[in-house]
Amino acid sequence: MRKPLLFPLFASACLMPATGIAQTDSAGDVPASPEEAEAKKEQVTDIASITSDRGIVTRPGRLTIEPAFSHAHSNATRVAIEGYTVIPALLVGLINISEIQRDIFVGALTFKYGFTSRFEADVRVPWLSVNEDLRERQAFEGTPVDTLRESSGEGLGDVELSARYQLNDGLEGWPYVIGVFRVKTPTGEGPYDVDQRVVEDSEGNPIGVELEERPTGSGFWSFEPGFSFIYPSDPAVLYGSLSYVWTMKEDQGPENGGEVDPGDVVRFGFGMGFAFNERTSFSLGYDHSVIRKTSFETNSDLFGANFDRIQVGSLSFGLAQRLSTNTTLSLTVNVGVTENAPNSELTLKLPITL
């Protein structure tokens, strides 16, 4: 299950350099007035706030409270074949056809505080509601009746702690570079925390494991260092990011495969934001995650020794509208472009700066 959310990009920084250094216009030759520099900073802030977690460096002493709501929908059809072929056109065995529909609703509250002109930290607390419907049929059993199963889960998700530091001033044509470090805690109910039952075929042979309810968290600690880049080119903003997620392995007991080592994740993304005017901006980008194999200590028939590598890619676009000096409303739409990505994801955010 992919969490909505898919992966984060950090692509924005304050356009104002450190105190005492003059800001220049887009040509890089004529010093801009403080009013012009402030206007550019506000535009970049609006552009970066469209998509989730762009890494805006909050001004010193300012607290930003950001309520957010998102909905992700996934719909997939899978065909599992257990048998052998006599000739290429003839299969002897069992064909299981299943259709899975999953809806994930996430309400989150983020608190972000700027300690200095270059350093900020935040905490994000999510609440998840997951609904999943499974419709399947065994093609060789000669029955027109589908088997329907429904499951759901609701509760606290994985709380995230993040810190960002602006590494340079972005002068002389260089992009702004921001170092990012994120920690995800296993506060949500993980896959190994919920009740499980063994799924058997018509002959009583185990063919898999089914969860009694949907988990709301990963169940593992993870640490994500990375970098984000932003290049202002008035009126557009170009951005990119690169990060690596390391997940700690844990012993889940012999019935769950022993020591489980979740696959690490390589994340990258890029895109562009464009300001239509002082209040409205638009963003278009692409996010991609490469999830490596998950390994188990035991070579169980139910779990297997390894899972294949997973590719998750999505195209995102959105709009942001400045409602007041301290409030911006943003709407983002993500469309999955790989098999394991959610079909669609809608995110609404309302950051309020105090």
Rank of each mutant, 00 (worst) to 15 (best):
P232A: 12
V183A: 12
P351E: 12
T332D: 15
W246H: 14
A11H: 09
A68V: 06
N75G: 08
K349W: 01
T77K: 14
D234M: 15
R124H: 02
G107N: 02
A139T: 06
M272H: 02
E213S: 12
A37P: 12
I291Q: 06
A13V: 09
G173R: 08
A11S: 13
L346D: 01
L15S: 11
Y176H: 15
S218H: 04
T328M: 09
W127M: 02
T353S: 13
E160Y: 05
P351R: 06
S243L: 04
L6S: 03
L9I: 15
F270Q: 09
E154N: 00
I104F: 03
Q252M: 01
F140V: 08
Y244P: 01
L211A: 05
P60T: 00
R62W: 14
G204M: 07
D46R: 14
D158G: 09
A68D: 04
S314K: 02
L6V: 11
F223T: 04
M1K: 05
P144D: 12
G226T: 07
S151R: 15
L167I: 15
V194S: 00
E297Y: 11
A275P: 05
S222Q: 09
I97L: 10
R322I: 00
D251V: 07
A37D: 12
Q138C: 05
E120F: 14
S117N: 13
P31H: 08
A80Y: 04
S151D: 09
D25E: 08
V290K: 04
D193C: 01
S295M: 06
V86C: 02
G179A: 14
I352M: 15
